[in-house]
Design a protein around this nucleic acid. Structure first.
Lengths: 110, 110
DNA sequence: TAAGTTCATCGCAAATGTACGATTAATAAT
DNA sequence: ATTATTAATCGTACATTTGCGATGAACTTA
């Protein structure tokens, strides 16, 4: 990115919503999250069986979701169990719903 | 992308949600949409005054939002008036809310 | 200790995204 | 016709994302 000097200052809320949205911006990650919503938790290996991508690629998508705060992993040797991060999930849900919830002024377009 | 031969088949719903999310995945675009929600419509020039980015860059973000279907532009010479695309906005809203609305099974993690 | 399992990380290639200035296109006003 | 205004598009540079195979780390089990 070449935002030159002027690093734009966005509202923290705006930045946060964009970060969550970006994490959701790939079908593989949506699929992973859908799976976690249904199955509560799962291991990387489970996903590798479901999604036809290399194990390393899936691991990378999981990392992005983890960095975004949407999931969390906990060691369960020799596996790692991933679950949705409830707290941030709520946060994301609220950000999206207030984003979409605003009343859009349809009139006065001239 | 090097998805080699096997183009992964995702559910249409999954693809669509990911597309919308991707379009929302940048703070500038969130800001543009917030502005459109509040002001109903606006011209490119309005945004250039609000957001400290080059006119060409903002035009590019507008294009992405348009391609994603979230906004629509209508000629209003010599300006172009952008508004939220109500139909797709509803669609996106519904996709996100059913995505986040699912009951997450918290138990049975073992 | 050695081998096996599970998953993250590294290194690479190719595609996409973000930003800019310069140019072009379309229309309005003189 | 010329000029001004508005906004899209082009060309470029650099960063990030996505994907893969190979390797490494951590822990179990034999």
């Amino acid at each position: 990115m070449k935002r030159s000097i002027k690093e734009i200052a966005y509202l923290e809320e705006t930045e946060e919503l964009a970060r969550f949205a970006k994490a959701l911006g790939h079908p593989t990650r949506i699929k992973i999250l859908n799976h976690l919503e249904n199955q509560s938790c799962c291991f990387t290996g489970d996903l590798v069986e479901i999604i036809p991508l290399a194990q390393s690629t899936i691991s990378q998508h999981l990392k992005e979701l983890k960095v975004a705060g949407l999931i969390q992993g906990e060691v369960n040797p020799p596996k790692i169990k991933y679950c949705i991060n409830q707290e941030n999930w709520e946060k994301a849900k609220n950000l999206f719903s207030s984003f979409f919830g605003k009343e859009i002024i349809k009139s006065s377009c001239k």
